[in-house]
Simulated assay, not measured.
Amino acid sequence: MSRWTRKLTFPDDRDAQDDWVVLREGLVVGRVIWDRSQGAGRPRWRWSVITMPSRSGWTDTMEAALAQVKASASDRWGHEPYGWP
């Protein structure tokens, strides 16, 4: 069973508190962000997967976006988090 976590992408930026990187076993495999560019009535949580093949989309909730990343991330690629110990 894989260990999934998330961390704020920019922890020191008060305006980026809804911007998360998603990690599997300590490697970045995706991102979930509240997308302010979407119009009213549209799903607002944008998710993306950086493993191969890459994928992205929008959902109505953060939980659904995280589930999409988990379901879509492959074992092909991922990288160490930048700037974290």
Rank of each mutant, 00 (worst) to 15 (best):
F10C: 04
Y82P: 00
E80R: 12
D12N: 15
W84P: 00
T51H: 07
H79L: 10
Q38I: 13
W84Q: 09
E80F: 09
L8R: 15
P85T: 04
Y82V: 06
V69M: 04
V32L: 01
P11G: 05
D12K: 10
S54A: 11
G57A: 08
A64P: 08
V29A: 04
K7T: 05
S48M: 12
S54E: 14
F10V: 04
M62N: 03
V28G: 00
D18E: 11
P53D: 11
L66G: 02
W77F: 15
Q68E: 15
W34H: 13
D18W: 10
L27W: 10
W47S: 09
T59D: 13
A67Y: 06
D75A: 13
K7I: 07
T51F: 11
R46C: 05
S54D: 12
M62D: 13
P43V: 01
T9W: 09
S48I: 00
A65E: 12
S72I: 02
G39F: 03
R24V: 05
T61N: 09
L66N: 07
T51K: 10
R31Q: 10
E25D: 15
R31G: 02
M62T: 00
M62L: 12
R3K: 14
P43E: 04
I33V: 14
A73S: 14
M1Y: 03
K7L: 09
E80Y: 08
R76Y: 13
Y82A: 07
E63G: 09
V49C: 15
L8S: 00
W58M: 14
Q17C: 03
V21S: 04
P53S: 12
A71W: 01
W77N: 14
D18C: 11
W47G: 06
K70Q: 15
I33N: 01
R36Q: 07
V29D: 06
F10D: 12
A73H: 06
A64E: 15
P53H: 10
S2C: 02
R3H: 11
L66E: 07
P81S: 10
D15S: 14
S54H: 12
D75N: 15
G57L: 12
D75E: 11
P11Y: 09
F10N: 14
W45C: 05
S54I: 03
V32A: 09
P11F: 05
Y82N: 03
G26H: 04
S72T: 05
T59A: 14
P85E: 05
D35Q: 08
T59G: 13
Y82D: 10
W45T: 08
W77L: 12
T9G: 01
R14T: 10
G39A: 06
A65R: 13
T5H: 01
W4V: 00
A73F: 13
P43K: 02
D75G: 15
V28E: 12
V22D: 06
L23H: 03
D18Y: 11
R46E: 09
T51P: 14
D19T: 04
D19M: 03
R42V: 07
R36M: 07
D13C: 04
W20V: 02
L23R: 06
V49Y: 03
V22F: 06
S37Y: 14
D18G: 07
P11V: 07
D35F: 11
V22M: 06
V32K: 00
M1L: 05
G39R: 07
A64R: 15
D35R: 10
T9K: 11
S37P: 00
W77M: 08
